[in-house]
Nucleic acid binder design. Structure first.
Lengths: 143, 143
DNA sequence: GGTTGACCTTCCAGCGACTGGAAGCATTAG
DNA sequence: CTAATGCTTCCAGTCGCTGGAAGGTCAACC
């Protein structure tokens, strides 16, 4: 049978802080674990696996809602891999949007920094650009 | 003299929602405007300029705190352009970190998606990767 | 037996940067 | 007179945690 672990041991094992584990339980991402006589949470190997899954999903930038969906698909032995792939593809598109936005910002900033001599003199193209009369519809943002 | 504008007109003029303008005032980013007899906020051209400045700074990804600092430097006629440049350079480094993180995520996801056939069959490298026994120290995150 | 100290429990509050909504005046048009 | 805007305030929610307070529990040490 699988070893019984306290929340601290699971935290140690998975690298997910105990506070975060309780939080995941609170929002329903993790099932409520069994309790020892003293009220302490008691976890098995399954919880460790699920937490590792969650941690990796979060590490790839999936939202909690997405991780919840992926966890559901993972538990479902009859899932279609197409569903998983669709979720991942949508996430890649979101990442691409953020990348494009950040790259635009970076390019504008790098240009401004290059044109700013950066000494004690007060004239500065960076501030001039931020306060100029030009239209500022340059940077698109999500709705 | 400069035209007196209501909050709605300033919002229209700058593209910053009235709610956000009030929020900026509340957190001290914008000074409290004059009030008409009926209690309505009354703005001048200066507030419009400052809001445009803020909007552009936010559009370049600067935090509110950074925008506040930039606004201070902008108002200070004796500022050193080096201070502005240092702030912008630090921001570029933060953007570079986010870019690197997102690019790593994207690469991992793209690889997983490519290896997932994505049909009705349940076997899926994406889920396998999330649940594998391999160490998951692959993705670094900020402290 | 007493007392640390490390662990566990609960609940509440805060981060950033807004955004939405409720409840209530002000002003203007019809 | 009423309806439609627009303005005011304040409170709550978003997302994903994280910190802290106040207290219970357990093993070890003197």
């Amino acid at each position: 049978m699988s070893a019984a672990l306290s929340i601290g041991e699971v935290a140690e094992e998975t690298g997910v802080p105990a506070k975060t584990i309780r939080y995941y339980e609170q929002i329903g991402l993790l099932p409520e674990p069994a309790r020892a006589d003293n009220g302490y949470r008691v976890y098995g190997a399954r919880a460790v696996d699920e937490l590792r899954f969650i941690k990796r999903g979060r590490g790839l930038g999936f939202s909690i809602a997405d991780v919840e969906a992926l966890l559901g698909l993972w538990r479902d032995k009859h899932r279609a891999s197409g569903d998983v792939r669709a979720l991942a593809e949508r996430h890649i598109r979101e990442i691409d949007e953020k990348l494009a936005e950040l790259e635009t910002m970076r390019a504008v900033l790098a240009d401004l920094v290059a044109r700013c001599h950066g000494d004690e003199r007060p004239d500065c193209p960076i501030l001039e650009s931020l306060s100029s009369e030009a239209p500022d519809d340059c940077c698109h943002h999500d709705p």
